[in-house]
Amino acid sequence: MAIEVRGVSKRFGDFVALEDVSITVADGALTALLGPSGSGKSTLLRIIAGLETPDSGEVVIDEQDVTASPARNRGVGFVFQHYAPFKHMTVHDNVAFGLSVRKRPKEEIRGRVEELLALVRLDGLAGRYPSQLSGGQLQRMALARALAVQPRVLLLDEPFGALDAQVRAELREWLRKLHEEIHVTTIFVTHDQEEAMEVAEQIVVMNKGRIEQAGAPRELYESPANEFVMSFIGPVNRLGDAFVRPHDIQILAEDDGTGTEALVERVVHLGFEVRVELKLPDGREIWAQVTREEAQQLELSQGQILSVRLPAPRVFAS
């Protein structure tokens, strides 16, 4: 179901959490709310869920104004950052909760829970308690619990924030596949631009309670609307008011007179990618990204003086 947020503002005391925020999420889309902490992304998610009331503005789900309706009537599935498990219930009872408060017949509940546990690959763990599960398993249980009531919209608050790097990468991949399978409109909050780029079809970049830019990951990377988006998404060199992507800097094999002199301060091998830290004659420091092969061909080494070609830098009107 499509979600629309229109002109929403929210204050907590003197702190402005959201200021006149509007977004549109298409039916079935997978969207990331991306921004640093304090940017208002979690508040926006909670307002969509009905866990927080906006000071002004509207929330529309499936062409229906839900601004005044409580969370339980909105048909949203919400996955909390720390999973919010019901610790006194087994995994089965956790997942069954939404169905059992709706007084569904026992048989139906059992069948549905089994189906969901298989979907999130927790079959066989139905009788365990949350304290006996790992972080990744808790995450998947929380997801199954949210999906049990067949929500119109799935909302996830920092879904991978509390997991270690490897489990995180696995779950990301898995979430994307799951979304392809069940196609429920999904919004997730993250502060990790890589995560947003990898999982989402659409990214909404937020900062200080406002939306900086919304669009497909590639669009944001290639044509950022402003300084904030440019520096928040993807690596960047800052030269005064101008910005240059590290992979746009060309290191020349021979000085043909078109380049600028630069001193190699450090060469860092990161596998396929090599990071070359350079110092320009005027003392400014930048870094360039080259492939392993390029680095070999150029025979890069520390202390070397070579010639680089800088692309036309991007300048944003402030």
Partner: peptide
């Protein structure tokens, strides 16, 4: 309040959330 809010988003009324989530949590 996370667990209570989770119960709420899953369709529980305030009364159901209290009996099924809050009270067992503080028992």
């Amino acid at each position: 309040t996370d667990a209570e809010q989770a119960a709420e988003t899953l369709g529980a009324s305030a009364w159901q959330a209290f009996w099924r989530v809050t009270l067992p949590g503080i028992r």
